[in-house]
Amino acid sequence: MHDETLLQVKNISVHYNGVRALKGVSVRLDRGEIVALMGPNGAGKSSILKSIFGLAPVSGGEIIFRGRPVPPATHQIAALGIAFIPQGRRVFRHLNVEENLEMGGFMIHDKKILKRRIEEAMDFFPVLRRKRKAKSGTLSGGEQQMLAIARGLVTDPEVLLLDEPSLGLAPKIVKEVFQKIRQINARRKTTVMVVEHNIKSILDIADRAYVLDKGKIVAHGESFAFLESDILERVFLGGVGAK
């Protein structure tokens, strides 16, 4: 079912000012999957996504997308077909909803295609259509998160990377967001990698998951396996990271 490996992170290490955030970490993403990256705060989950996008200082290892090494310059990656929704609902606050979506399609030169994609994105998130002319800074937290994800979809990416999409959102909204992610994966066939601390929500929709602790992968497997084991409990409460 998932045999083509789209994205491979091989053995990377990340150091911030001498502090080691990741050591020898490898993850892979196969076509059509939803993969979860989990772990306690500071485990290094976000660093994995950031390093794919050239936003973290990577020393050692390689990152391969569709068989080719990913360029280190951040702005060259969107064109490959990977979209990144960073942590914190980072919309362009001074632009309105429609303009934000337009910016998402910055790489698209054909105006008709851009328009179509924006309409499709608004189909997916009807609340955005209702508020298309509203300045995005005035939207609620949940609406902003939808906008951030929608913006990523405008390029119709093959791979969607999300960093803590549920952060700071009310439980009801969190549920909605994860429903949307599942729909994106099911209907649009977008491959997804999600960093999440909300274990229940993510394991609900993920096919596979990795668990990180203190910069290393400590567990990895199909999501149902995690629901049955106590590894998560041990990691989050005790810490199982290799010393």
């Binding site: 702005h75 064109a79 960073p86 362009f92 001074h94």
Partner: peptide, 24 residues
């Protein structure tokens, strides 16, 4: 202009501007 919009995006959030593909 597209250039101008890129400038506005960069003013708001330079990192996200890069993420969506603008050579900031």
């Amino acid at each position: 202009t597209k250039f101008g919009k890129a400038v506005k995006a960069i003013s708001d959030d330079e990192e996200v501007a890069r993420i969506i593909g603008i050579d900031t």
